[in-house]
Simulated assay, not measured.
Amino acid sequence: MTKPIKGRGAVSNRASRFDEIKRERVDDGWYQEEEAPPRTEVMPDSNRSIITYNESPDIPFDRSINPYKGCEHACAYCYARPSHAYLGLSPGLDFETKLFAKFKAAELLRQELAKPRYRPAPISLGANTDPYQPVERKLRITRAVLQVLHDTRHPVAVITKSALIERDIDLLAPMAERNLAQAAVSVTTLSADLSRRLEPRATAPHRRLRAIKTLAEAGIPVTVMFAPVIPALNDAEMEDVLGAAREAGARSAAFVLLRLPREVNEIFEEWLAVHEPGKAQHVMSLVQQMREGRHNQSEFGARMTGKGLFAQLLQKRFRLACSRLGLNRTRSELDCSQFRPPPVGGQLSLFRETPISSLRSRMSHSGALRRLVCEQCLIRGVSR
């Protein structure tokens, strides 16, 4: 029988959909030596760009940054797990133990923001994997990315389930004061026991609530994410989670129904069989009721909230709770007008940031300036 692995969410290293050979461990009754728990490995990612763009109509941003591939939080339900299959790895244990860090993230971000054709819009930091997972404490890649956004006055919305975000309040608070930063903290459950088994290396629930309080007191607008909603497992906690987050200082709230794309379905079913065997069949039955008989829906609009009576009930409960608690009464849009492109480097940055027409107006005051501008025009191919 499959056993839970201490500190890990997945209970197997299930093969990805691209693997031609499938392996399965079988207990044949003979003695088998216990394997040591897999250790976390961090490898450099070979990415050439850092901003990912999307055209999804059911999410409030069109671009995002994920400093890491894979996530050590090890959430059994994580919808990002299938992305590890593209790396030739398992969406199971490999996803939470073999991480890829984007060490050049800040440098690449400066390059992309400096492009003449770049137009600012809020960047979601952590849309796929958590930007504040445990390895960030040492690697500080998310910190470096935030520093670039801070220096260029670029709007950002951070989403995490880690209290490590408190470390970067010195950057986020002044940005929030300029209406350039928001934070969203995911609170899946108030039960420490369920959280420990469901998302073993994420921050404990009570600590996430304290992080909400700390962020709010620093003047940073905070949204609480009750996500994912898992029927018959944590859905009964909706009102309690929203109430606790509101008391801590959250201004707004959102929820997302459990999503089980591709390999996540089998990984989560394995987790249920090991950790919640008495509820496993009931949970999956309700999931299918809200997914039109399937385990997952990829259609825009329905993938986040589901369909059917149970899904409608969740939506109504959410609206009533938010109305009672005073959540979502106001929504502020992040300001994109303050964006200042980073300097390209060298003297050319002066002419990039200063319009040629402005310099020409001052030519009569300096013959040297006239010659300098002409030289720059020749370099850049600009007609006199």
Rank of each mutant, 00 (worst) to 15 (best):
L327P: 03
Y68L: 05
S162L: 04
R362A: 13
L171G: 00
L209E: 02
Y68W: 15
P60T: 13
Q315M: 15
I159F: 04
E269F: 05
V283A: 08
G306K: 04
S298C: 08
I356N: 09
P228D: 13
P200S: 07
R294S: 11
N328P: 02
G345M: 10
L313T: 07
A202E: 03
V156R: 00
P155T: 07
R167F: 05
G278W: 05
M175G: 01
G243E: 10
F18L: 14
T52Q: 00
K98I: 15
E237V: 15
P341D: 10
E20W: 08
L113T: 00
L327Q: 09
P57L: 05
R291N: 06
I169Y: 03
C377T: 09
A232L: 11
I169T: 09
R362I: 06
I159V: 08
Q147T: 12
V222C: 02
I356W: 15
C374T: 08
N179S: 14
L164E: 13
M175F: 12
R23T: 14
A157K: 02
D335M: 07
F300S: 07
A106Q: 00
R324H: 12
M43R: 15
T40V: 12
S195N: 13
N13A: 04
K307M: 15
T160H: 01
V148L: 10
A254D: 08
F226K: 01
R143G: 03
N13I: 04
M238Q: 14
Q289H: 10
R317I: 01
R294C: 05
F255P: 00
S361T: 10
V158F: 01
I5E: 06
V229N: 07
P261D: 15
D193P: 01
L372M: 15
A76S: 12
S46N: 14
P342V: 00
L372A: 14
R294E: 04
P261V: 15
S46Q: 13
V283C: 09
D28V: 06
G326Y: 13
F18M: 15
R251Y: 04
R196K: 12
A157D: 13
R331N: 11
L350R: 09
R178C: 12
A216V: 09
N47L: 13
K22M: 06
